[in-house]
Design a protein around this nucleic acid. Sequence first.
DNA 1: CTAATTATTTACTAATGAGTACAGAAATTA
DNA 2: TAATTTCTGTACTCATTAGTAAATAATTAG
Lengths: 202, 202
Amino acid sequence: MSTEIKASQARGRPRCFNLEEALDRSLLLFWQKGFQNTSLDEIAEAVGVKKPSLYAAFGDKEMLFRKVLLRYSGKLSEPVQALDRYDDIREAINAFIELGITSGCSHGHPRGCLLASAFADSTLLPPNLAKEIKALINQADQAVAQRLKKAVRDGQLPADFDVKGAAKFLITLMHGVALRIRAGESRTDLQRIKKAALRCLG
Amino acid sequence: MSTEIKASQARGRPRCFNLEEALDRSLLLFWQKGFQNTSLDEIAEAVGVKKPSLYAAFGDKEMLFRKVLLRYSGKLSEPVQALDRYDDIREAINAFIELGITSGCSHGHPRGCLLASAFADSTLLPPNLAKEIKALINQADQAVAQRLKKAVRDGQLPADFDVKGAAKFLITLMHGVALRIRAGESRTDLQRIKKAALRCLG
DNA sequence: CTAATTATTTACTAATGAGTACAGAAATTA
DNA sequence: TAATTTCTGTACTCATTAGTAAATAATTAG
């Protein structure tokens, strides 16, 4: 009952496309145009295969998106991981925001953040998808909260610091930033937003 | 050549529905389901009229949405206007965020902010619509910047304070907040986000 | 009353897109 | 080689939706 993706090396006709590659191409399309506005016809063409092959491999559109989302949230963790690379919490948060901006603006994929965009549209998506998206957002909130909690333990933040509130604040801000990035906001203006945000802990 | 909306009291068969009311109903639907996911069939039904009447009255879907957006941005200004109701900049910003939360959560309309949601999807919309949305966001940025500039003049903020960056920061944050509201975030958690944000100027 | 004007409805078109039935192709096993 | 398994493409179905053509209804001007 697990939704495993395996290179079934068993018998029968072998698959003529790579599953991981197909997910990557789907990711780019979903990222660029969202769940609703990406058609399976498009994806099939991008993957170089016909629609029924996709259905056979991934189920329906929702299941495909779910797999893409999981794949994405693996890579996504970059900025959150950066939080743990600095002992000083301000440096850590600076790196967190910086990496969010950098990765959101970097080339080789659409601008912005697939998860933030999906979150924005979550009320329009199939309920199960919406739940999964919210769960991923929640994970992000909690990962940031963990790091802030450590900063409190380390005496870098006051003992009564609202860790959960601050974590949600940071993730919320980055959602807004992701929308700006997607809409084409300039790097320099994004930097200014970052600096303004950093006053919150300075 | 202006896109005026007048109760043409001239001759010919009189219109059997109210234009403003039609815009209000359209607003609620677009707000709830976005531009792409709201069909003119739905709107026609909500207005109590057939599709061609809408086309005759408003042009096409894009023009209708444009008019809805203008109508909305009138009401939207509430939080921005609140900025001018307080002499102290911190109180002003507190009220700004508070009103954003309150109005985004209030009943009688969908949760969140039509403009923020539209902004999130702006890359998917017809180019002219996207431009108009960005222009409205820009207006908001500048309105906040104006108020911050005054605070600098009043000596409530340091002379080298980055007014434009802080303004963009606040609007960006509220976009993130609007997404959270839309996704069902609790009032108490939103308050905690607000308090975390207020540290930026405290 | 007649003509002109404007709004409304019925009934379409054309395009798009999710999902599927089915037959054929490519491999493994016996 | 024959049987079995699994994947692939062709060719659909069915639903939705933006937009329109054309006939009709309601009003004013003369």
